[in-house]
């Protein structure tokens, strides 16, 4: 890729420009609309020449603003809270997935042990399980089985602190959603990191061993720093799924643990769609992935190709 660029037919540049426009166009359209009054969106006077307003963002973020926007007398949309929930869930599940996944990938690559093949094959197979298939069992389990009895010591303690009536269950908590996301993302992360760990020369590990490092020290101090690109790719993919997922979150969350996608879908299904506000919430949800894409497109492409080619 370092060769000098060849001179090309201008048609090729035209195609590239058109493709860029096509893929970015809808996003720009959404960005533009999020700064318009609903009247302007509906009258459709002009796509790009209009009086910008931040009113939509004020409405969306009304529960976290330090001032009360003039145009609102009631703050109905709890977007700030949902955003915090999304952030907690996505970040915690990404970190957990990476730590647990990289450890498992290391074990699968470097050790021969009883049960290794079973784990490895199961990991490959469950990669295709879609959230929709997990919906029914996870809903049942999280509400009925993964509970702590309210009469037990720990359960009683949690109930006294947080209130509530029934047993203490995973459903409706952040940890409940995080657990599904970690489990859902683990197979992919394990699988993609394996291809990075294989490339770490064994001699480095052996040198560290000779210097007296234990297996965990070798892993955290030698292996992890060397597979940073792989970790970055895996982190982006995990974060993306946890940040964007709707179905399982909507089944497992309650009023206080709603994430942003749920909020958007709930506001969409009403008849009178407030386009401006909904575009603003959509934009806010899209900002973190957009930032990742612009900063780390190289890692994303590496991860994507490594993930597909090594089927």
């Amino acid at each position: 890729m370092d060769q000098p660029y060849e001179k090309q037919n201008p048609a090729v540049y035209a195609i590239i420009a058109m493709l860029v426009l096509m893929s970015v166009g809808p996003v720009i359209l959404m960005l533009a609309n999020s700064f318009k009054f609903d009247v302007d969106i509906i009258s459709g006077a002009s796509s790009f020449f209009f009086m910008p307003t931040i009113q939509n963002y004020e409405t969306a973020l009304c529960d976290v603003l330090w001032y009360e926007p003039d145009h609102l007398d009631f703050c109905g949309l709890k977007f700030g809270g949902a955003f915090t929930n999304s952030l907690i869930i996505a970040l915690v599940s990404t970190i957990l997935t990476l730590v647990i996944g990289s450890m498992a990938a290391y074990a699968l690559v470097r050790f021969r042990f009883f049960g290794r093949d079973t784990v490895s094959i199961t990991t490959l197979m469950v990669r295709m399980v879609p959230p929709a298939v997990l919906l029914v069992p996870v809903f049942g389990l999280w509400n009925n089985e993964f509970c702590i009895d309210k009469n037990s010591l720990v359960g009683g303690l949690i109930r006294d602190t947080f209130g509530g009536r029934g047993d203490v269950c995973l459903a409706g908590t952040h940890s409940g959603i995080i657990l599904v996301y970690v489990a859902m993302n683990l197979p992919f992360v394990i699988w993609i990191l394996q291809s990075f760990i294989v490339q770490v020369p064994r001699s480095l590990e052996e040198a560290a061993r000779v210097d007296g490092a234990g297996p965990f020290q070798v892993f955290f101090k030698v292996i992890l720093p060397l597979i940073k690109p792989g970790l970055a790719a895996a982190a982006i993919f995990t974060f993306r799924i946890a940040w964007n997922e709707y179905l399982l979150a909507s089944a497992l969350s309650d009023r206080n643990t709603k994430t942003v996608p749920i909020l958007i879908v709930n506001n969409m299904s009403e008849f009178n769609v407030e386009w401006g506000v909904i575009m603003a919430t959509g934009m806010l949800l899209a900002i973190p992935p957009i930032i990742f894409t612009l900063l780390a497109s190289r890692q994303i492409i590496t991860g994507m190709t490594a993930g597909a080619v090594k089927g």
């Binding site: 860029v20 970015v24 809808p26 964007n244 958007i264 969409m268 575009m279 992935p289």
Partner: peptide, 22 residues
């Protein structure tokens, strides 16, 4: 082109639906 091309895949499906519904 490659950077811009990844964008649609990274954005939440919910938001993609929203843009296209508009």
């Amino acid at each position: 082109l490659r950077t811009m091309f990844i964008l649609p895949m990274m954005i939440a499906p919910v938001v993609v639906g929203l843009m296209w519904r508009y």
